[in-house]
């Protein structure tokens, strides 16, 4: 994969049906423990009866270009990769959770070490190779337990030429993924649309997840 790629995601809110398939696909792909959900769908009801609509806003990590989490991390455990993804080095993170505090999107979660062993046999046998690192079994006292975690844009899938799980699974095709460095890419074109906006623009975070009204 060439280094000049700058990944971004476009989410078309007109196409999102609020099915939460992305949330489920993300949990399955990244095998996140209870309490850690890289992607969620926020549902808002607007208007009063009889003119009521529901708006669904999927919320992954915004992979900000000016990320407050990177700004505050005392040990540089969280940092920007050249491809635009905000990464966490699980072997460096001390678990102070300052980044969780500073994220304006609530996109970061602490791994308290819980698991689904009550619900599922063998849930700890394998972990997602996040950031392309195979960590083997999920074991007590080993990272990422005790670390902060968040959406990685499915970097491990990108490495093998696949889209993030949430993009692949979306039944309404509401999510687009691609290279913002390439002006001809679908995401570049959509990002230039007058419908395009980002969450909490006033925070100055410059998110790489762009929404279409």
């Amino acid at each position: 994969m060439s280094a000049d790629k700058k990944w971004a995601m476009v989410i078309d809110l007109q196409k999102c049906i609020g099915c939460d398939a992305c949330t489920v696909a993300c949990k399955a792909e990244n095998r996140t423990p209870p309490g850690v959900t890289y992607n969620i769908v926020i549902t808002e009801e607007r208007g009063t009866f009889p003119s009521v609509t529901r708006v669904h806003v999927p919320r992954p990590c915004m992979q900000c270009d000016r990320p407050p989490c990177v700004q505050v991390c005392p040990v540089k455990a969280t940092y920007k990769m050249e491809n635009g993804i905000t990464a966490i080095d699980y072997d460096r993170c001390i678990g102070c959770r300052y980044c969780i505090i500073s994220c304006p999107y609530g996109a970061r979660y602490f791994d308290f070490g819980l698991d689904y062993s009550q619900e599922m046999v063998g849930c700890n046998e394998v972990q997602a190779p996040e950031y392309g690192v195979d960590r083997g079994k999920r074991e007590k006292g080993k990272s990422p337990i005790g670390n902060v975690r968040k959406c990685t844009f499915c970097y491990h899938r990108l490495l093998r030429g696949e889209e993030p799980a949430c993009v692949e699974v979306c039944p309404g095709d509401a999510r687009y993924f691609g290279d913002l460095n390439d002006p001809e890419s679908v995401v570049s074109k959509l990002a230039a649309s007058p419908r395009a906006f980002v969450l909490k623009e006033e925070m100055g975070t410059k998110p790489r997840v762009i929404y279409l009204k």
Binding site: Q71, P74, V75, K76, A77, R92, C93, I94, V148
Partner: peptide, 17 residues
């Protein structure tokens, strides 16, 4: 969250933190 890594705060220094 990971007490045993407290020394990382001396070893690695993020200027903006």
């Amino acid at each position: 969250g990971r007490m045993e890594r407290f020394w990382h705060t001396f070893r690695y220094w993020n200027f903006t933190s």
